[in-house]
Nucleic acid binder design. Structure first.
Length: 263
DNA sequence: CGGGTTTGACCAGCGC
DNA sequence: GCGCTGGTCAAACCCG
């Protein structure tokens, strides 16, 4: 990709010219080249994303197979969701919708952390407000309860508990679907493009595997064509916000704009 | 002062 | 009905 970037000192756009030498034509040529560059970059990003999606689906399939072999956690009961979300249902319908709800909107994520780190923080980019902590019977480590605090209308919940078998493993259980955009979509774009950079910024956190991928709507959105376009737009916006990118473009342009000697 | 965390109390489902 | 348990509430507290 690097070879496609316009370097200020690169002679790619023709020889240097004197300030009075048809700058409009040169600028038009530059504009065309930049447009072409932009189109190629967009295609590259799309290809990159397609490959990423395929790999992600493959990983999800493997993870779901692992879940089936290990056996899913028994469905937990819920107190008020039945009344809130299925008020018109009868008892059976309520129970069924509750089960379907749990199946359809819950996902488990295993995150590797430093065993000595007592915090139950899973860096998933969303903003969470802790509303409770409990020590459960089958696990000596406390379970923390979080609610999404990014949007008041978002009722997504998250439970985080250290694995009893592996102290270095945090188990984050998500319930519900975010009804807002990812607050750090920029980070996600970077994560999609260069995960190694993201890992280096958070060395102690290592997402291991995402369970029940088919029901993880948050990730499911990523696989939609609609998200495709949004992702490309986001990446373009990201590039244009990148100081290095804008500086390079500015340098390239300024290098070709006729300079008038100081009077 | 506003937002987040802590923590004991409370509530509701489930099994016996 | 009772006890156990997971989930939630809310007051007190903390912090920037």
């Amino acid at each position: 990709m690097g070879s496609n970037w316009i370097h200020p000192s690169s002679p790619g756009l023709g020889p240097r010219r004197s300030p009075d030498r048809a700058p409009v034509g040169v600028l038009e040529a530059m504009l065309n080249q930049i447009s072409e560059e932009n189109r190629r970059l967009t295609e590259m990003v799309s290809d990159m994303y397609t490959n990423h999606s395929a790999l992600r689906r493959r990983l999800s399939d493997l993870a779901s197979v692992a879940t089936c072999e290990k056996g899913p956690a028994p469905p937990k009961r819920k107190r008020v969701d039945c009344d809130k979300h299925a008020a018109s249902d009868d008892e059976h319908g309520c129970k069924r919708s509750r089960e379907e709800d749990a199946m359809a909107k819950t996902s488990k994520i295993y995150v590797r952390t430093v065993p000595s780190d007592p915090s139950l923080v899973v860096m998933d980019g969303y903003r969470w407000r802790k509303y409770g902590q409990k020590v459960t019977r089958d696990n000596p480590f406390p379970r923390a309860y979080f609610r999404c605090s990014f949007a008041p209308s978002c009722h997504v919940k998250k439970k985080v508990q250290r694995s009893a078998e592996d102290k270095s493993l945090l188990v984050a259980t998500y319930e519900g679907v975010h009804n807002h955009k990812h607050p750090s979509s920029l980070d996600e774009v970077y994560a999609l493009m260069c995960p190694s950079i993201m890992n280096s910024s958070a060395p102690s956190i290592d997402p291991v595997v995402t369970r029940q991928p088919d029901v993880d709507r948050g990730l499911g959105e990523i696989d939609s064509p609609k998200f495709d376009g949004a992702l490309v737009e986001q990446m373009v916006a990201t590039l244009t916000k990148d100081p290095n990118f804008t500086a390079a473009v500015a340098a390239a342009i300024s290098d070709r704009i006729p300079r008038h000697p100081p009077t």
